[in-house]
Design a protein around this nucleic acid. Sequence first.
RNA 1: GGACGCGUAGCUCAGUGGGAGAGCGCUCGCUUCACACGCGAGAGGUCGGUGGUUCGAGUCCACCCGCGCCCACCA
Length: 881
Amino acid sequence: MSERIEELEQRTRFEPTEVEPRIVEQWLQSGLFHPEPDGEASENYSIAIPPPNVTGSLHMGHALNGSIQDALIRYHRMNSPPPRRTKWILGTDHAGIATQAQVEKALRTEGTSRQEIGREAFVERVWEWREHYGHTIVEQFKRLGASCDYSEERFTLDDSYARAVVEVFVRLHEKGWIYRDRYIVNWDPGSRSAISDLEVEERRETDTLYSIRYDVEGGGSVTIATVRPETMLGDTAVAVHPQDERYRDLVGRTAILPLVGRHLPIIADEYVKMDFGTGQLKITPAHDPNDFEIGARHDLDQVSVIGEDGRMTAEAGERFAGLTVMEAREAVVAALEEEGRVVAREEYEHEVPYSHRSGQRIEPLISLQWFMSMDELAPPAIEAVRDGRVKIVPDNHRRVYLDWMENIRPWCISRQLWWGHRLPVYYCDTCGHVNVARTPPEGCAECGGHVSQEEDVLDTWFSSALWPFATLGWPDDTPELKAFYPTNVLSTARDILFLWVARMIMMGLELTGEVPFSDVYIHSVIQAPDGRRMSKSLGTGIDPLDEIAKHGADAVRFGLLAMSSSQDVRYSAEKVQQGQALANKLFNAARFALTRIHASLGERAESIEPAAMPRTVEDRWILSRLSQILADTGARIESYDFSHAALGLYDFVYGELCDWYIELVKHRLPDLSGGLEGAEEEERVALAATLLYVLRETVAMAHPVIPFVTEELWRYLDGGDELLAGAPYPRAQEDLIDLEGEVVLERTIEAVTVIRGWRDSVGARAGLFISARLNADCYAATSGLLARMARLDLSDDGQADGAVVASIPVPCGTVEILSGEGLDLGAAERRRTAAREKLQAEIERVQAKLEKPGFVERAPATVVEGERERLRQLGAELEAL
RNA sequence: GGACGCGUAGCUCAGUGGGAGAGCGCUCGCUUCACACGCGAGAGGUCGGUGGUUCGAGUCCACCCGCGCCCACCA
């Protein structure tokens, strides 16, 4: 036996920690993950990874999406013709707010702050941070076995990427779609920046709803309700509904704002609900998005009483200026109480906006920001999804996408941060002209005066929106772009469908004229085992790297794919264990086959080529099953049905290959002992070739799901130097499908199961005191397999000795169990009775069905005949007992 | 207020209008010469509820109950 096989024989289990680092190294050395940029995108396959935050580390979502994308990439790489140009575009996102927050936190522990060290030093610090922590997650992707193109790692702040960002900004500004405006925005006091609508999260909270009486000039009063009394300081009107009979007389008159004394026009606007509260509404254009709109319609003043620091401004008046919003609320209520203006207060449950980034409560306020209009960008992106150029899987998300896109609003793209792409906007210090330019201008285009660049940076999602093409060298017409753009699929979780996916589609169409990907696959969100959100702060997080260390990357990948579905799922440790078991099982099956073949054929074993050479019914069966699972697995991966792809592999390896096929053929490969006859040797060689063939195809088939164990086994099964990652994906062989062979084997399996059950129930020891007799058909059909599998002294009709203890009907005929010494016949009788009762009940059920009025007339003939046949069979079985 | 989705074995979940499934857990038995990350056997389900369509419903329809999630400008 060769050294290689001897060494393999010693390894009784698959040890991921030993194997994985070695295999990763081989893959990286091979260059297989880096395709040369040749050909057209239509003939190549590519995926752009959703770029993880540069300072992030691998969490369960990355691990799942990594497993999904890698399964797709590996499958398509194996399926593409050499040189297998399949590219998984890799890179990280600078993640403005998140990264800045981390570095700020670090600065705080050093007792300083970004304000203290200044912008330049701060940005310097962030780059250092990035150098230090920015590659962690990429290394972690390697541990998962992700076959990204590591040789070309992108970063959304790289110079070339920044060029793309500036180009886009300038182009869209020239078109008039990017503009500057004073508008009410979601102000996040936590990050001291505006954030987009999508970064706001509504939380249900209970507050006090105050009813406050404002006097009306010339007599009378209005009563308004608010949960935010502090904002009354910024009221500039009171509104009622134009059709509201009760208040018709009030419209046009003037209310007096308590505490402040400001004169508030009483206006009519259809926004006001007549049936809610008093039907009288205070209008605060500077601190409420609705009021802002109403204010615009009626040309009302905007009085900003809350500042960007979350404190009351001077405009709030001396008594309140400088107070926090909450302090101001108390103070305002107290002051109003004093004047006797609070007429009611009640508990009130409502939605309160919070920043998704900082967790702080959003302060809507008016601010000068940059916006991107969606009016021209959205329609083509809607059309692309409507007409199927972009397919969203599963398709129930299609509607969600379309609904959102059809009601899309301008996007606030400026952020008051330091970490990110600074807007390519240069304000003239002299004339105030706004210069927008690809390169910093020498001076103002209007007056030649000195210019200063905009302080704000762009929303991170602005640069992310360009990801599929900016990573490939756009705006230049590079070979990479030609070879890999558009990409094939974008795989992500639901939560960034609008934030990112929709924007990529819009930007892709506008800037490249093509959809950035043809499929969007929306995968599950993995929750903690108890159903809560998986999060570090809740303590519900499970670290995928811990799981990889414990169970191996194959196990984690298998588990994640197996548990994923079209909806959110709870993390299942069992599925990971199942994956670990599968990797080990496959390893041992291959190990056994290889060592047994060598033991059985000696030198000859070295020269056996894997090939389908069926000699027996079980050979025909496994080849047939193999061909079908090959077709199924490919189809499942292509249709993003990863769960069934993974579980189907498990079922095949366990339920068919190992439990039955290998068990069935063991005896045909006895240890090399005594002389080998020529014919006998040829039979063994044929079996060895078939067994190796089945294993090789199985291993290759499973590679996209469990790449490590399969790559490890490949060198034993293929014989060449080629890595499995670069080998062709096995194809289903139509001519090996053999339904007749399958039927015979399934019958055999049923018979064996029955006999084993008997032996188990009577407590007989293996092979002792029990034998069985088959009728002739049954015996012939199974070619004696039954005997070996059931470890019985088995004979065909009338040949075995002993009294008949039981006749067991199996699909191919009847098995008679013959007694021997030591049988517990009482147990046998009990079992027989139970079986009889079960059969009787089943017969009655089927009879009732057949006798039911209308069944015979209306049900399809095949169904009726099937039921009758079943009844006959059940009757025969009962008879036999 | 709208949209989408989910209630199937103790747990996590598959399930195509015609005989209720898997993994794990549980019980019993196996140191059977690949694998105890293993092998064999078994227990355990009024398929959330009520109606309807159908010869036939876990599957289709309606309503109800419970749960999740997304969108949304009612103070």
